[in-house]
């Protein structure tokens, strides 16, 4: 059986989610050991268990070691079972990460899927719903898999309580993706979302972002959310280019000033704009797996992160086509994904 060292690389959770996705796609069992071995609180955490149990449900998997604190997990997937599912994850866990673990397998499996995901939709250290809906899913559609998603209400840390739905028809033949240029910039927007918090926070964020980005005033807007079940704040920048849309996020949290949150996000936007690459860091991590399942392809992005390299390693372990990271300049890397041999 394929054994994966969970202590390797940076993201213990990411290794696990990618392994779950690939095991279901390839219908192979795997064992992961030393899960988050070097962490202060080692082993599986509840957000990881949420991903494991969602994957187990859609694939009828046989699972061993799925317990909080467990450092070893065996996952033996069965055939995928299309249908309607609801997955809930506690506030500390991101519902978008749960989706990440199951979505690749749904895409390649014939049938209609309807998922309801509950929990955090805008959590730090996870792609916010907006990045999913505006940046990632449109690219999947371009590869041949249309995924519809609707946000019913956002969920912020720590209260959670968000909900969104995802619908797709799996089993379509996926084409390759080529994203070497982003083309001309067509849309620039910064929105500050506040739920249950003073609007002044949003105003301060927008003012700080505007100072850094120097975009027109019309690009900045406040969105006051009534539907949320708890307080929360994020500031999102959207850069719509000819060939794709990228999303950058600043998460408001207790103890960090609105200005600091917005400035950090603005710095990321500026870095991206200056580099002239189409794909940002987080999107690069997310694209690798679907591209490997499809007919491969290539994109340009910023300097690969440790997460990206970890992802490349997991793909290799599951026998996907080779992924090459080619440095073209200090700020521009070309990522080439080979079509899998299977």
């Amino acid at each position: 059986m394929l054994t994966i060292d969970g202590a390797w690389g940076e993201g213990g959770g990411q290794i696990l989610r990618s392994s779950l996705a690939l095991a279901m796609v390839r219908q192979v069992p795997f064992r992961i050991v030393n899960i988050r071995a070097k962490r202060k609180r080692p082993g599986l955490m509840r957000q990881h268990l949420a991903a494991v149990s969602a994957a187990a449900v859609v694939s009828g998997a046989e699972v061993k070691g799925a317990e909080v604190g467990s450092q070893e997990l065996t996952f033996r997937p069965g055939p995928l079972r299309p249908g309607q599912y609801t997955f809930s994850v506690g506030s500390a866990g991101s519902a978008t990460l749960v989706l990440q673990a199951v979505l690749p397998a749904l895409m390649v499996t014939q049938g209609a899927w309807a998922l309801t995901l509950e929990g955090g939709t805008h959590n730090p250290l996870a792609p916010p719903f907006d990045a999913l809906a505006k940046a990632f899913l449109p690219l999947l559609a371009r590869m041949g898999c249309a995924v519809q998603t609707v946000l019913e209400r956002p969920g912020f840390y720590p209260a959670g309580g968000g909900r969104f739905t995802v619908r797709l028809k799996g089993g379509a033949k996926l084409s390759s993706l080529l994203l070497l240029e982003r083309g001309e910039t067509r849309r620039r927007e910064v929105s500050a979302l506040v739920a249950g918090l003073p609007k002044a926070i949003a105003q301060r964020e927008l003012a700080s972002a505007a100072r850094k980005l120097k975009w027109d005033a019309v690009c900045f807007r406040i969105e006051a959310i009534q539907a949320a079940h708890g307080p929360g704040n994020v500031v999102l920048a959207e850069v719509g280019s000819e060939h794709l849309t990228e999303i950058f996020t600043g998460f408001g949290e207790k103890g960090r000033s609105a200005e600091a949150v917005a400035e950090r996000m603005a710095d990321e936007v500026l870095e991206y704009l200056a580099a002239q690459v189409p794909v940002g860091r987080h999107l690069a991590d997310q694209l690798l797996l679907p591209m490997a399942l499809a007919a491969g392809g290539a994109f340009r992005t910023l300097t690969p992160t440790e997460h990206t390299r970890t992802q490349v390693e997991v793909l290799r372990l599951f026998g996907c086509g080779e992924v090459r990271l080619v440095e073209e300049s200090a700020t521009c890397w070309r990522v080439e994904v080979e079509r899998a041999a299977w």
Partner: peptide
């Protein structure tokens, strides 16, 4: 009590 990542 119910929000800890390592306590289910």
């Amino acid at each position: 009590l119910c929000q800890h990542e390592d306590l289910l």
